[in-house]
């Protein structure tokens, strides 16, 4: 898994590439928790280049969303398509997160 962080008009965009499994999920978890840990943070996680996400990855996302609620931060996912979207649907996660179609829409939704 590779992570790439960018700033776009006060919104932090984290692009996740490759696989989120039990080995890589803790790394993503640490990073995300830190990002949404600051009060009022605005974070977009771009999954457009994600190949695989296991139950460990979904757990990390749930924890990050919970943390964002506690700190009144905003967490938006984008680029959830194809087989990754199918996994979100399968696990019943599509309605649990704010999911934008593109990165631009994600930034707008987070801003």
């Amino acid at each position: 898994m590779d992570l790439n962080e960018e700033q776009a008009g006060g919104v932090t965009v984290l692009q996740v590439m490759g696989r989120i499994d039990s080995t890589t999920a803790p790394v993503l978890g640490e990073r995300l928790t830190a990002m949404v840990g600051a009060a009022g943070a605005r974070v977009v996680v771009d999954f457009s280049q994600l190949d695989y996400i296991s139950s460990a990855g979904f757990r990390i996302l749930l924890l990050a969303a919970k943390r964002a609620d506690q700190t009144t931060s905003k967490l938006v996912l984008c680029g959830v398509s194809g087989k990754v979207r199918q996994l979100f649907d399968l696990g019943g996660f599509l309605d649990l997160f704010t999911i934008a179609h593109t990165r631009e829409e994600g930034i707008a939704a987070a801003g």
Binding site: S54, S55, A56, F58, R59, L62, L63, K66, L87, L90, G91, L96
Partner: peptide, 19 residues
């Protein structure tokens, strides 16, 4: 449930089995 998934790794494993 989401709470079960977040609270323990057992919840995460059961999510895996369910998927």
């Amino acid at each position: 449930t989401n709470e079960e998934i977040m609270e323990s790794e057992d919840g995460q494993r059961r999510l895996a089995g369910f998927m």
